[in-house]
């Protein structure tokens, strides 16, 4: 009898979350294509690894397969920071496909200590405000909660970024500790933010990707036979597509949920968007400079991403 490899997979979503189910399905498909030589158990709600440690814990073999935000391995994946820039992402499907295409094109060395299964992510990321607003300009001077990596976006709009744990965002918004937040649409329902904000400013000028990785411990990957590796690679491509579609579906659901709570989705004019795009330019320049200082092709990565988004609206 052949030895069965048991993989433990860590996700931070709760068990009922569609993404958790999707990774469970991925596990079943892996089992099928490897004729049962590989089995996968999914551990939801970060019960296997704290979210901030998923990347390194996968490198160290505490976790066999893990998915989390690229931003949770700060400084470790410099070239791939291009994905979280405000490039004007339209939706999570587009973002997930781009992230994967970017990885395949550049095969960045920074990912060498793991096996990348696929990259994906949530988009669009917008500013939500507690008080109703009529234009992006009104964000000026407001205190906006943002993750550290997105703080420059908030600053560029003339607002003040406040960093705090995502779990505190709901309470902080409901009591007015902050005036708004920068979040992917999905958070309206996922973190119940739709209950405590009034306006979502649909300005694609700020839209960034909450980019995420799905990775596997390299030693475990290398133990697989080339046929099994190939079979898994094949379903990974399918799942990159599936999770992209699912991000989209979640966004639509979150939008419905928020609308049900009376949240206004403010559409901005083309001119307003163009002004915002201009304001975001220095952030892109800073990225290229940072990459260059590390000897990485930041300009090429940025150009690739912008071209991809233009070609695949």
């Amino acid at each position: 009898q052949e030895k069965v490899m048991k993989l433990r997979l860590s996700v931070f979503w709760p068990p009922q979350h569609p993404h958790t189910k999707l990774f469970e399905q991925w596990g079943k498909d892996v089992e099928k294509v490897t004729n049962g030589r590989v089995t996968v158990t999914v551990f939801a709600s970060s019960t296997l690894s704290p979210p901030m440690q998923v990347y390194d814990n996968t490198v160290k073999g505490i976790v066999d397969v893990g998915t989390a935000l690229l931003a949770y391995a700060p400084g470790r994946l410099p070239l791939s920071e291009v994905l979280q820039l405000p490039l004007g992402y339209r939706n999570g499907y587009q973002g997930s496909k781009l992230a994967n295409a970017y990885y395949k094109k550049f095969k960045p060395k920074e990912f060498d200590d793991v096996k990348v299964l696929f990259l994906h992510g949530a988009a669009p990321g917008f500013i939500f405000t507690k008080k109703p607003v009529k234009s992006t300009d009104e964000v000026k001077g407001l205190r906006i909660r943002a993750n550290a990596e997105n703080a420059p976006i908030v600053k560029a709009l003339g607002a003040s970024p406040v960093t705090m744990p995502v779990t505190e965002a709901y309470d902080a918004l409901s009591r007015g500790v902050v005036d708004g937040t920068l979040f992917p649409l999905e958070a309206l329902q996922g973190f119940k933010i739709g209950e405590v904000v009034k306006t979502v400013i649909e300005n694609y000028g700020v839209s960034y990707l909450t980019s995420q990785f799905a990775i596997m411990n390299k030693a475990k990957w290398n133990q697989l036979s080339p046929e099994d590796q190939k079979a898994i690679e094949k379903i990974n491509d399918e799942y990159n597509d599936k999770i992209g579609r699912q991000w989209d579906a979640l966004d639509q659901k979150a939008k419905e949920f928020a609308k049900g709570k009376g949240v206004i989705f403010l559409e901005v004019s083309k001119e307003e968007e163009a002004v915002t795009v201009e304001k975001m330019k220095p952030i892109l320049d800073d990225y290229v400079k940072m990459a260059k200082s590390k000897g990485l092709p930041g300009d090429e990565a940025l150009k690739f991403c912008l071209d991809y988004l233009k070609k695949n609206p």
């Binding site: 709760p14 009922q16 779990t167 709901y170 309470d171 409901s174 973190f191 119940k192 209950e195």
Partner: peptide
């Protein structure tokens, strides 16, 4: 309130924290 346990429960089972 504000109970950390309830916040995490609310997020886990998708119920209104308020």
């Amino acid at each position: 309130p504000p109970s950390t346990v309830l916040i995490i429960y609310g997020l886990q089972v998708e119920q209104s924290i308020g």
